[in-house]
Design a protein around this nucleic acid. Structure first.
Length: 781
RNA sequence: UGGCCCGUCGUCUAAUGGCAAGACCCCGGUCUUUGGAACCGGUAACGGUGGUUCGAGUCCACCCGGGCCAACCA
């Protein structure tokens, strides 16, 4: 392990940071419980894989628990086959839920009880509108919704109706249970969300026990709470759902410590179809061979293709975790696969597109065998195999060129090339058919170079792979590439996505028949992953390549630095990306429309906005920020009432105070305007540095208190004594002689580092200006 | 269009007010019986504009760009 003490285990992504903070504050009594909650309505894809790795990895890192919970609340889409498949995929990835296997449908009774409680509290009601009426009543993103006529049913009536819904008295859609929240909430999800619906459907686990089923937003948070999940991690599109998540939990009586939801961006991978809703149609239309078609990005497909699970784990750690995200290049995934396979996969030779070479200086019945190492020296692994050689060998058609492009290092007429592990070969004659196509090469080998020996002074340009014609095994090789044709840019903007089934690329699967492979593979374990030298990583297809059927999947091609032609497409893409990034400067005045509207409605605000710049010498922007509400105005005016400098106070309010505010208002602050005024005066008088005053302000926001007393308590009285500062500075500089040298060598931006260290040493109490000048004295002399 | 969220090398991610870092890609080079691997080097970024600060990628504001939300799906 190369981890140092200052690197916390398991990465520093924002979710792990949150967990560390929760551990530090003992929020959950040291518990860390994560979960992966798939709906069994399809197979998992690589996006899910990264989510599993995240959740499982966190549980591992913090000695917590990882739950697998099937979120099976929709009887119409789910089945046991998917449950089986998903379990298998997760285990294959290396995540282990142990005893922690759960099904949301097992909680139906408890969820029902919670709903009854909600009704009793007046927080839920039975709505009997049609689906369309409910939809219309919800309003739009810009217009508030309207209340259902059933919104004010009595608790008794709701209780009765809800019980009868459960009892099966009503048809599908006759009633729903809705949360009673706010039809005008800007978050559409809070406009009386549907909690339960009637569906007379057979559930694959619960049979016909239920005819009402809970919806995601109601069910999911309860599931987390029932299981004692601490950190409920989902993707960014559920961000708007978090408010409802919290509402349901709070309303149902789950108090802190309760689960909390955190969203990350999830994975988007270039050239991968990452949506169960998109994969399903491809499978049912027969455009792929199944959920495990190796062209798909499902875990089952990767497993079948031959991708090792370690590669997916490595890929996940390479990509990382964030809230912003974007599309990850396929290169990164391929890199991870190659990285794992390079040290794992024994080398063999296989010719995918064979061209016959007759060795004219060997007897026709020549036969010998070379013992060739299975790994190159740098991999450092033992092992070899016998590779038969005879007077006729297959080579790769692309390894010969009659008219070679510049930089071609393979076989050309009259040229030499080494047959890997065998002899150096010279091309003496090219045999063509009547159309000029090359059908055979007549060559001679240099007997001095047998078995890879290399007589002094013998240098050969390239090395190619080969297979003895007499001993070659015939194989089928399947090559996979991007399943879908790229979408034209204009097309994508058109709103509706083009039908995915029409975008399947005919070239996405290339089946090579009659590939020639060395016989050693017949003796190896079926699940051996090979490197076909110079070609790529392959293994036998686990479905079709069993018994004596030699059917190989290409897991990934080898990287190649050989460039036939420059990659025009990519450079064009880059130019386009660069153009998009350019944006012009803003021209509008930097005044908020919202605050301007407030001033238009309140002459008191408008007057002050007009007067402040002149009266207090502050900018229009600051005046704007101070006059958005009477509360802010009052705060400001009380802060300057006792003589604090208005300009300084304004700066504090519009920057530092606002930073502490978050969503709240100034009135909710734990300190008052005049306390801020006193603090500002202390800064002005030099009693405390501005830097230290920020820490004091943070403390005031936290617990209130008098600024003067806090400065004493926190030991932050300004340090400007030259001798004392000088000592501290000398100590800091002595501690980093290399940086001092670099500074003197011209890296003057290191001054910030030095000041920072001095400020740190004094916990912000030093006067930074004094520090700067003292530093200059020492460093620039 | 209302609300919420997100903008750092071509791509993915670091930085927690103090040295803009790493990986992939790309480009050179060394080495090589795999145009692989390894090794050395290089190109390359804080969306814009103001403000606060000794010091801003980080705090504040405005603008620009992108994402999500109007299923009785999850």
């Amino acid at each position: 392990m190369s981890e140092t003490n200052d690197t916390p285990p398991g990465g520093t992504d924002f979710i792990r940071q949150q967990i560390r903070a929760d551990l530090a504050s003992d929020r959950y009594g040291g518990r860390v419980v994560t979960r992966f909650p798939p709906e069994p309505n399809g197979y998992l894809h690589v996006g899910h894989a990264t989510a599993i790795i995240l959740n499982y990895g966190i549980a591992q890192d913090f000695s917590g628990r990882f739950h697998l919970r099937f979120d099976d609340t929709n009887p119409e889409k789910e089945n046991e086959e998917y449950v089986r498949g998903i379990k298998e995929d997760i285990l294959w990835l290396g995540a282990d839920w142990g005893e922690q296997l759960y099904f949301a449908s097992d909680y139906f009774e408890r969820m029902y009880d919670c709903a009854v409680t909600l009704i009793q509290k007046g927080l839920a009601y039975v709505d009997s509108q049609s689906l369309e009426a409910i939809r219309e009543g919800r309003g739009t993103v810009t217009e508030a919704g309207t209340a259902s006529p059933y919104r004010d049913r009595t608790v008794e009536e709701n209780l009765d109706l809800f019980a009868r819904m459960r009892d099966g008295e009503f048809t599908d859609g006759a009633h729903v249970l809705r949360g009673k929240i706010d039809m005008g909430d800007p978050n559409m999800l809070m406009r009386d969300p549907v909690l339960y619906r009637i569906r007379h459907a057979h559930h694959y686990r619960q049979g016909d026990d239920w005819c009402i089923y809970p919806l995601y937003d109601y069910a999911h948070c309860l599931e987390d709470a029932f299981e004692g999940v601490t950190h409920s991690i989902c993707t960014i599109e559920f961000e708007n759902n978090r408010e409802l998540y919290d509402w349901v939990l709070e309303s149902s009586g789950f108090t802190e410590p309760r689960p909390h939801q955190y969203e990350w961006a999830g994975l988007d991978l270039e050239n991968a179809v990452l949506s169960k809703r998109a994969i399903g149609p491809l499978v049912s239309a027969g455009l792929v061979s199944g959920w495990d078609d190796p062209r798909l990005a499902t875990i089952a497909a990767y497993r079948r293709r031959g991708v090792p699970p370690e590669a997916i784990r490595m890929f996940a750690s390479l990509v990382g975790v964030s809230r912003s995200g974007g599309r990850t290049e396929e290169d990164k995934f391929e890199y991870a696969i190659r990285e794992v396979l390079n040290t794992e996969a024994p080398r063999v030779m296989a010719v995918l597109d064979p061209l016959k070479v007759v060795l004219t200086n060997l007897p026709e019945d020549h036969a010998e065998s070379f013992d060739i190492a299975s790994f190159p020296p740098d991999v450092g692994r033992d092992g070899s195999r016998a590779v038969p050689f005879a007077a006729e060998v297959w080579i790769e058609r692309s390894d010969f060129a009659q008219d070679p492009p510049e930089g071609f290092r393979r076989l050309v007429p009259g040229g030499e090339v080494r047959l890997r592990g065998a002899y150096v070969l010279r091309c003496d004659e090219v045999v063509t058919d009547e159309e000029g196509a090359v059908v055979e090469l007549r060559c001679s080998v240099d007997l001095q170079t047998r078995g890879g020996s290399n007589p002094e002074g013998r240098r050969v340009n390239g090395t190619i792979h080969w297979v003895s014609v007499a001993d070659a095994l015939d194989a089928e090789v399947r090559l996979f590439s991007a399943l879908l044709e790229p979408v034209d840019e204009g097309e994508e903007i058109e709103g509706d996505e083009p039908d995915i089934t029409e975008r399947v690329s005919p070239d996405s699967l290339v089946v090579v028949h009659g590939a020639k492979i060395e016989p050693s593979v017949a003796d190896e374990a079926l699940d051996t992953r090979y490197q076909f030298e110079r070609t790529g990583y392959f293994w036998r297809d686990p479905s079709d390549g069993r018994d004596d059927r030699l059917i190989f999947n290409r897991i990934v091609a080898l990287k190649s630095t050989y460039r036939g032609a420059p990659d025009v497409e990519r450079s064009e893409q880059r130019e386009r990306a660069a153009e998009v990034k350019k944006t012009g400067p803003s021209v509008k005045p930097q005044i908020s429309e919202v605050r301007q509207a407030a001033r238009n409605a309140d002459p008191g605000l408008a007057e002050r906005f007009a007067a402040y710049p002149e009266a207090y010498g502050i900018s229009i922007e600051h005046a704007d920020l101070l006059t958005g509400s009477m509360a802010t105005v009052a705060f400001f005016e009380s802060a300057i009432a006792d003589g604090a400098d208005p300009g300084a106070v304004a700066s504090w309010i519009v920057t530092d105070v606002r930073a502490l505010l978050g969503d709240g208002a100034v009135a909710d602050l734990a300190f008052t305007g005049d306390a801020l005024g006193r603090l500002v005066e202390l800064v002005t008088s030099g009693a405390v540095s501005r830097r230290a005053a920020k820490d004091v302000l943070a403390r005031m926001a936290d617990r209130g208190g008098d600024p003067g007393e806090l400065i004493e308590d926190m030991g932050l009285a300004a340090v400007s004594d030259t001798n004392m500062l000088g000592e501290i500075i000398d100590g800091v500089l002595a501690g980093m002689p290399d940086k001092v040298e670099a500074y003197r060598g011209g890296r003057t931006n290191l001054i910030g580092l030095f000041i920072g260290e001095v400020m740190k040493a004094t916990r912000g109490a030093a006067d930074p200006k004094a520090v700067r000048s003292l530093l200059s004295e020492r460093l620039d002399s």
